[in-house]
C-alpha cells in the first residue's frame, strides 16, 4: 500500500483543519486591534459641496451610539448592505456617518442619490489614507463607536439578517451599558 495513495486524504485533512479554525474565526466578526481603542485622529472634506465633511470630533458623541461605515460606489457588496444601513440610520440614539473610500465624489453622490442617503455626515477619503489608520481592509466595513471608543468592527457587508441577530443586540448592549 504505497503512501502516495494517502496523499489526497492528507491534503483534505489540512483543508479540514483550516475550515475548523475558520469556523471559529468568522471573517466578518474577527476582533480588530482597534477594539476598545479611541477612534483615530482624522479630518475629511465633504463630497463636493455636500455637507461639512467628517472628523474625529463628530465621532465623540456622549448622547448617541455612532456608527461609521466605509463605502464606495464601485463596491457591489455596499449595494447589498444598503437597506441594512437605511435601517440603522433611522434608529433612535444612533448616528450613522459614512466615509467614501477611494471614490470619486461625483460617483459617491450619484450612488447615494440612486439608493438613498442613510448617512448623517459624510467624509471623502479620496486616497484611502484615513482608511489605513482605521485598519480597513476593504469596503464595506462598519465600526460601532461609543464615547469615541471603537467597540465593534464589522468586515464585509451587513446582511439583512445580521441586523437583527448581531448589530441591534450590540447597539442595545452599548446603550444599556451607559444607563447603568
Amino acid at each position: 500500500m504505497p503512501l502516495k495513495r494517502f496523499l489526497p486524504l492528507f491534503i483534505f485533512a489540512g483543508i479540514l483543519i483550516a475550515f475548523m479554525i475558520g469556523l471559529s474565526l468568522k471573517p466578518s466578526e474577527i476582533p480588530s486591534g482597534l477594539i476598545n481603542k479611541p477612534v483615530p485622529d482624522f479630518s475629511l472634506p465633504p463630497l463636493q459641496g455636500d455637507g461639512i465633511g467628517l472628523s474625529t470630533a463628530d465621532l465623540i458623541d456622549p448622547e448617541n451610539i455612532v456608527i461609521v461605515n466605509f463605502f464606495a460606489s464601485w463596491c457591489g457588496p455596499c449595494r447589498v448592505e444598503h437597506p441594512a444601513l437605511e435601517l440603522l440610520g433611522k434608529l433612535d440614539g444612533v448616528k450613522l456617518h459614512g466615509i467614501a473610500y477611494k471614490d470619486r465624489p461625483k460617483n459617491s453622490l450619484s450612488f447615494l442619490k440612486s439608493l438613498g442617503n442613510p448617512y448623517d455626515k459624510i467624509g471623502a477619503d479620496l486616497k484611502g489614507r484615513v482608511a489605513i489608520d482605521w485598519g480597513v481592509t476593504g469596503t464595506p466595513e462598519t465600526f460601532i463607536i461609543k464615547n469615541g471608543i471603537i467597540r465593534y468592527q464589522h468586515i464585509g457587508p451587513i446582511h439583512q439578517m445580521q441586523v437583527d441577530d448581531l448589530i441591534l443586540p450590540i447597539i442595545k448592549n452599548l446603550q444599556q451599558e451607559g444607563a447603568s
Binding site: M1, P2, R5, F6, P8, L9, F12, A13, L16
Partner: peptide, 13 residues
C-alpha cells in the same frame, strides 16, 4: 470526503 479518500487509499491498489 475523508471516508472516501481513506477508502481510496486502502482499496485503490
Amino acid at each position: 470526503i475523508g471516508g472516501s479518500f481513506l477508502l481510496f487509499a486502502i482499496r485503490s491498489d
